[in-house]
Write a protein that binds this DNA or RNA. Structure first.
Lengths: 146, 146
DNA sequence: TTTGATTAGTTGTATAAACAACTATATGCC
DNA sequence: GGCATATAGTTGTTTATACAACTAATCAAA
């Protein structure tokens, strides 16, 4: 029994990700009250495009840890909102390259500020070294399971 | 800037809960390959009913951190699967008390074993004291935001 | 005791995720 | 070159979540 740390009450909240759900909800509310007409999931796609645009849907799948149908539909909705554009690759006609629009470029600064603000609220009172440990553990969990 | 610990790459995975998503997916796969015809969300409702049955839908909302429509529909689906039963309260006719069926009582042991197994896989190689810190941080995050 | 507010639960609508099945294009091997 | 296979993306279906609007029952206060 190498790491059997889980009494039942703790097991539940670890699996359901209560903390990350709470963070996402808080951020969504900030988006709404700031008039950003954007879901967290859409934001998470833009997030990666702000780092690098012109990547394929498959690369977005890998970056956002989603499957292909999920990305197809997120890109569908982002295109309807005029926030991204699909551009067929010239080298490989199977591939769509996803580009930002002028409109979504404008959203970056405000939405990222709200995200940072949310995390600061979430981690208020938590000392930096504990945050480090927590991030490290969550990364190991992800690596162990992916 | 009290706790501004987040460089951009880290911000993303904290918000999206990559780790808990990975855990939930792994557990879902274990359910599927074990022939447990059950979603993680349905399991999370049963989980609380195994601790105490005969509670109201509102109490399930609080326990599972979901809103009322979500619980209505989860209970709908659990009822279709013959895993729970709605029983109108005699004291307060607004309230449904939710009870387990014989069928769902049988699922407890196997599904809980799979959940523990999943967490052990997730946390393999993580020392116990780091797990403790991580759980503590996640609890504080939840309390800060709820 | 009646009326106004609160609480419990349901329904409608939009967005999203997982899985399977599908089309179209590209690649690799003979 | 031609065929098998792999890859990129789409579509269909089921389940789940969030929010708003709704019904029914209860409570509280004038």
């Amino acid at each position: 029994m190498p790491n059997n740390q889980f009494k039942k009450g703790e097991l539940y909240s670890f699996i359901t990700g209560k903390a990350s759900t709470a963070i996402a909800r808080r951020l969504q509310k900030k988006f709404n009250t700031s008039g950003l007409n954007l879901t967290i999931e859409q934001w998470s796609v833009l997030y990666h495009l702000w780092k690098q645009e012109g990547i394929s849907q498959q690369e977005l799948c890998n970056a956002t840890f989603r499957d292909k149908p999920s990305i197809t539909r997120l890109v569908d909705n982002l295109e309807k909102l005029n926030l991204v554009k699909r551009v067929p690759s010239e080298n490989d006609r199977r591939i769509n390259l996803i580009y930002l629009t002028r409109q979504s470029q404008k959203l970056q600064e405000e939405s990222m500020a709200l995200a940072e603000q949310t995390l600061n609220e979430a981690l208020e009172t938590v000392p930096a070294e504990k945050i480090e440990v927590c991030k490290e553990v969550l990364q190991v969990v992800y690596d162990n399971l992916k």
